[in-house]
Amino acid sequence: MTATTDVLPTDHPVELAHGHGDGGINTALLGMLLFIASEIMFFAGLFAAYFSVRAKYGSHWPALPEGVEFAINPLVIIATLILVSSSGVIQWGLWRIRKGDRRGLNRAFALTMLMGLTFLAFQATDYVLLADEGISLNGSIFGSLFFTMTGFHGAHVLGGVIGIGIILSRGMTGQFSARNHVAVEAVSAYWHFVDVVWIFLFLTLYILR
């Protein structure tokens, strides 16, 4: 059959580019949420490795070389408080732009960025202190797990900070409004994800050890 198909006209408008219409979640935000789902599975792999190794050790955990102790540095608690509260700040910024408040958005994102950078600085300091105590990526299974998990988390914080920086620079040129701010939604969703991963890391590595 080589005749060209005769396509019937429809009675309702066909929005080719927008498909099913504008109902439901924004496409870009959906993309970000799916990306976050894949990121969760990446960290799930690391967490699974942690618990699978740890199960072998029972009470002899953390497994470290002779004479090396692992303790919580107070810096980490402060860093945790900063990161957790930054989630509130970024959410406040999101609420502001939903109401059309551009200055509120910029202020909140600037503050979130600062808090993220502070977290990274504290984490770097903690790494140096741990190295002094003899805990490092090589040499012990605890060290390998600890630095891989927190290191990848730190890289994600850095990624979030860069994202926030992009939003901030766009926000300062007034590109967002109450109706048009999907990038803000996406970046804040990502930041919440980074924050939640840290809560699980903190509980696992510091509290439940």
């Binding site: 599975m41 792999g45 299974i141």
Partner: peptide, 30 residues
């Protein structure tokens, strides 16, 4: 979306084992 990132985590751990002295898959190192 749910399976490939888990492979990625394994690839990363093996890479760390091979190049930075990690101990993930080495029973001798725990």
């Amino acid at each position: 979306i749910f399976a490939v990132p888990v492979l990625a985590s394994g690839l990363v751990m093996l890479f760390i084992d091979r190049n930075y002295g990690g101990a993930f898959f080495d029973p001798a190192a725990g």
